[in-house]
């Protein structure tokens, strides 16, 4: 199955679980997306751990212009203070619409768990057709502890009261997936 077909499947599966999927041509568009979304939702700050310094510089500028706070680390001290978690996704799994995040860094986990909205950026080339095609990579990572790996497919959800689907019971209320050209 070719890459673009897999991309269609990923989108289809992700959208089926209320993920908002958008394609972005370059990182600048991704920063802008996260900033505008945060503003629109009335958020005051973005938590963005795990990015390289160049990316951060650009994001910092966008945030400053928009009057938003930006937290890159020590997120324990900022719990409740950030609205958006902006992170990379290490892989995408088309068959289930899943994002895989290598989350061994505590900051990365806190950003994705304690935000109201999670924006994840997936480089297009990092897409796999199904979980088994990622097995070797995952097994390798697990063989190098400590390791905290997360499969994320949609926002936090529950159907525990009368089986009515409700989003955001513990973690993010929304998940936005930005597919980045690379």
């Amino acid at each position: 199955m070719n890459h673009s077909r897999n991309m269609e499947i990923l989108k289809e599966r992700a959208e089926a679980v209320q993920v908002v999927v958008t394609e972005v041509p370059d990182p600048a568009q991704a920063w802008r997306y996260a900033v505008e979304l945060t503003q629109k939702q009335g958020g005051a700050a973005i938590a963005a751990p795990g990015w390289d310094p160049d990316s951060l510089a650009a994001l910092e500028k966008e945030c400053a212009q928009a009057g938003l706070g930006l937290y890159r680390q020590n997120l324990r001290d900022q719990i409740g203070g950030f609205h958006t978690g902006l992170t990379r996704a290490d892989w995408g799994i088309a068959a289930t619409g899943t994002l895989v995040l290598e989350s061994t860094s505590e900051d990365l986990r806190l950003a994705t768990m304690l935000c109201e909205t999670h924006v994840a950026v997936l480089p297009r080339s990092r897409l796999k057709p199904d979980s088994l095609s990622l097995e070797a990579e995952l097994a390798k990572l697990m063989g190098e502890p400590p390791r905290y790996l997360a499969f994320i497919t949609g926002a936090s959800r529950t159907a525990d009261i009368e089986r009515v689907l409700t989003l955001g019971v513990h973690g993010p209320l929304e998940l936005h997936l930005l597919i980045l050209e690379d």
């Binding site: 289930t96 061994t104 860094s105 697990m142 400590p146 790996l149 949609g154």
Partner: peptide, 28 residues
């Protein structure tokens, strides 16, 4: 994992699957 969530709730997969190996970072 391919069959558990579909069998449980009719979901393709659950929102989260967490894989923990070893004692990870915990700043507190």
């Amino acid at each position: 994992l391919k069959v558990l969530p579909p069998s449980a709730t009719g979901q393709v997969i659950t929102s989260y699957v967490t894989w923990i190996t070893g004692a990870t970072e915990c700043t507190t």
